[in-house]
């Protein structure tokens, strides 16, 4: 069996597959029978207003990505792309669900909603509807590279180094501290 260096080609191939599929996503695959859930809905409280709170971390999350609209109990529209600076500045956007202290999560907080039993995306879609299997920004700068910050590849759940000028997705959080 040919052993490929997944570390190198995997993050490159998946975005190309998603793009070539015309923006439609491959079906999510979850393996709950062989992998314990790590961020499933049983741990969260649904406030019915487009936000959920993780009772373990005490973090409150917007269910939709920035650029999407919360309506009809789900997220519609396309998750927008932002540079790292723009992503940080999303914290200055208008209040949502009666709260105005939303912010970009750090990389540890962002990893806490990764559902390791699932792929494409590695997130519970019941909690976070219409999440694309895309790359998301964290507020954590990268000690390895002055031009990068930490990102989370939500198509498979791993973290990595993202150039601050690239356009990635944003999900806002509040609380937890």
């Amino acid at each position: 069996m040919v052993k490929v260096n997944r570390r190198l080609w995997f993050p490159l191939v998946w975005p190309l597959l998603a793009i070539s599929a015309g923006g439609t996503l491959a079906d999510q695959v979850c393996k709950y029978d062989s992998i314990p859930a790590t961020a499933s809905a049983s741990r969260f409280t649904d406030h019915g207003d487009g936000t959920v709170t993780d009772q373990a971390t005490r973090l409150q999350w917007k269910r939709c990505s920035e650029g999407q609209d919360w309506s009809g109990g789900t997220c519609s529209g396309t998750a927008a792309g932002y540079t790292w600076q723009q992503a940080l500045q999303q914290a200055d956007t208008p209040s949502f669900a009666g709260k105005d202290d939303w912010r970009l999560p750090d990389i540890a907080e962002l990893t806490s909603i990764v559902e390791e039993a699932c792929q494409v995306p590695a997130i519970d879609l019941g909690l976070f509807p219409a999440t694309p299997g895309s790359v998301y920004w964290s507020s954590s700068p990268d000690a390895s590279y002055t031009d990068s910050a930490w990102i989370l590849y939500f198509y498979y759940g791993g973290s990595g180094h993202g150039n601050k000028l690239n356009a990635y997705r944003v999900r806002l959080v509040r609380g937890g501290q």
Binding site: Q85, L88, R103, L104, D106, S139, S140, P141, Q177
Partner: peptide, 11 residues
């Protein structure tokens, strides 16, 4: 221009 970074929050 770069508000709300990791270092501004938490422990």
């Amino acid at each position: 221009g770069y508000p709300g970074q990791d270092a501004s929050q938490g422990r």
